[in-house]
Design a binder for these strands. Structure first.
Length: 564
DNA sequence: TTAGGGATAATT
DNA sequence: AATTATCCCTAA
């Protein structure tokens, strides 16, 4: 936002992954010129599909409610919030462009790289959004339009390449260059033609249409360079790069007539998309907890290899989810939202080289976290007080407004929870710091004192900070190895097992009804006790749960059932 | 990997 | 205080 102020400092400015959501209209108005006529017929014959499971709540949130058929008593609508922008079914291409694409393009013109990936089930409008059709240009044509307009008088050239990665069956992925010449096209503003040809071929050729394109990834790469320097520098020296990716379908493989085929690792229709998601998830976890290594999922597919910098959080990325909102789409949509929503917490920093983290570097990171935590605790305390007071007031009045009371109480509960969360994080950080081996006598003593005293969190934070300072100052030539090895529990020194255990316990996560249903279905399909199989077949739904978690949950579900 | 027993956090 | 839901540990 403010390029002038952000400069050198290492972890200076980071921005979150932009997560957009676009809901496809239920009915194809004939204008769309859709390629699948069966769709139209189907929805005409089966009007109950009109019931929408997904609705826009605000410009940044949606509500998802299961269709009646799936309800099993305990149904509540879920809210997904925090999107950069939600585009309703009647949003126009221009609107999407303005709010999502234009900032990317403008940064691109200023030499800042970025990427946009479209993700969603096939038929949800990914391609329509990215490429558009004759009457409604998509993001790519609109972006080019803007780019050509703004570079017409400059001395810069634009390079564009477009290619497709297909992986058919279980075979190797293959790359198909869709540009007429097979190499990068040099384009000035008048030579837009080449792209049009590529576009046309992809969008309208019936042989190349649905079946294949839903399983292939289309990548468009724009590069802008100054004409002064020679054009063909392989590296992205100073040039901005803008990559637009049309990811393969993100639906789960089994339709209505499921066949328990050996699925690869999860039910993704396509390996590349799965790897893409694995990368993002790993990145997110790594950022939440730096002790977790950033796994190298990217090397598992061509696309993610190509996008490595983005997969590792080094360059900025935006994601647009396209979904269908019909009742029949509930499952796919739910899976997609559940999976992709957390990604909005991913951050990108511009710092390109982060070699090996010295402990003091890591500690500095913790210190910053502590500071933030300190603030938030303070803030939460205040809101807590405020709300509690408010609640009291309410209660002292007549009890007509019970509902309001409940809402306030809920809010307080929520705040309490996040407050708790922060405090446990403090505890966690504290234990990590202890693990760093405080060889210094003085420091060890200090730690001991801290451990035994019953300080208020605020004070504790303060003391921890000074503690860190002591460590950082007396620490110049540590080598790495600590960081990479730590995620392994066994590598932690057994100094303080009790404290360590406390800190490591995962925060309990309630089972969603989707997860429960999936578990039931899994047991039905594979049998009781095949937890590993059930888990890996549904990893996109179960997220970070373990086999044991599934087993325990099943124990619960059935125990309750028999107890009845 | 799984089944069970236990610990711990969340709810009632 | 008692009951549940989750998470953790470990023998087999």
């Amino acid at each position: 936002m403010d390029p002038a102020t952000e400069e050198t400092s290492d972890m200076a400015k980071s921005e979150n992954l932009g997560l957009f959501l676009r809901i496809r209209p239920l009915l194809q108005s004939g204008v769309r010129g859709d390629r699948n006529p069966r769709f139209r017929r189907k929805s005409a014959f089966e009007p109950w599909f009109q019931k929408m499971c997904l609705r826009v709540k605000t410009s940044r949130s949606v509500t998802l409610s299961p269709p009646l058929a799936l309800e099993r008593g305990r149904t509540k609508t879920e809210v997904y919030d925090g999107f950069s922008q939600v585009f309703s079914p009647d949003s126009s291409q221009e609107e999407v462009y303005e709010k999502m694409m234009r900032p990317l393009v403008e940064d691109f013109l200023r030499g800042k790289s970025g990427m946009l990936a479209a993700f969603g089930p096939s038929g949800s409008g990914k391609t329509h959004t990215i490429f558009g059709c004759n009457s409604q240009s998509g993001m790519v044509p609109l972006a080019l339009q803007q780019i050509f307009k703004e570079t017409s008088d400059s001395t810069r050239s634009l390079f564009i390449s477009i290619f497709e990665i297909r992986c058919e069956g279980g075979k190797e992925e293959r790359v198909f260059d869709l540009s007429p010449n097979g190499v990068d096209l040099t384009m000035h503003r008048s030579t837009l033609k080449g792209l049009h040809e590529a576009l046309l071929r992809r969008a309208t050729s019936p042989t190349n249409a649905n079946s294949q394109s839903s399983r292939s990834q289309c990548v468009i790469n724009l590069r802008i360079v100054d004409d002064k320097s020679n054009g063909e520098v392989n590296d992205q020296a100073n040039d901005g790069v803008l990559i637009i990716v049309d990811l393969a379908g993100a639906e789960r493989e089994k339709g209505t007539g499921n066949q328990g085929v050996r699925l690869l690792e999860s039910n993704f229709i396509n390996k590349t998309s799965m790897v893409f998601c694995l990368c993002l998830r790993s990145l997110l976890e790594h950022q939440k907890n730096p002790m977790k290594p950033l796994e190298k999922h990217f090397q598992d597919s061509l696309l993610t290899k190509y996008l490595r910098d983005y997969m590792e959080g080094k360059k900025r990325m935006a994601l647009i989810l396209t979904v269908k909102a019909g009742g029949e789409d509930y499952h796919n949509t739910s899976c997609l939202l559940k999976q992709a929503t957390p990604y909005m917490e991913i951050k990108f920093n511009n710092e390109p080289s982060k070699r090996r983290l010295s402990p003091s570097f890591v500690l500095k990171g913790y210190k910053e976290k502590l500071e933030v935590a300190e603030h938030e605790i303070q803030h939460l305390r205040e809101s807590n007080l405020e709300l509690e007071k408010e609640l009291k007031d309410h209660k002292s009045q007549i009890e007509v407004q019970r509902l309001d009371d409940d809402q306030v109480a809920q809010e307080i509960q929520r705040l309490r929870e996040s407050n708790l969360e922060l405090e446990t994080e403090l505890k966690y950080l504290k234990s990590l710091i202890e693990v760093e081996r405080l060889a210094d006598d003085q420091v060890a003593e200090e730690t001991q004192r801290l451990k035994e005293s019953n300080l208020e969190p605020e004070k504790e934070v303060k003391d921890l900070k000074s503690l860190i300072d002591v460590q950082i100052s007396g620490d110049d030539q540590w080598d790495d190895s600590v960081v990479e090895d730590l995620p392994n529990k066994n590598a932690i020194s057994p100094s303080n097992e009790d404290n360590d255990r406390l800190a490591r316990r995962r925060k309990g996560k309630k089972w969603s009804s989707l997860e429960e249903d999936t578990l039931r279905a899994g047991v039905e399909q594979y049998g009781v006790g095949r937890w590993k199989l059930i888990l890996t077949s549904n990893r996109d739904i179960f997220g970070e749960r373990t086999q044991v978690d599934l087993k325990d949950k099943w124990r619960n579900l059935t125990r309750q059932h028999t107890h009845h």
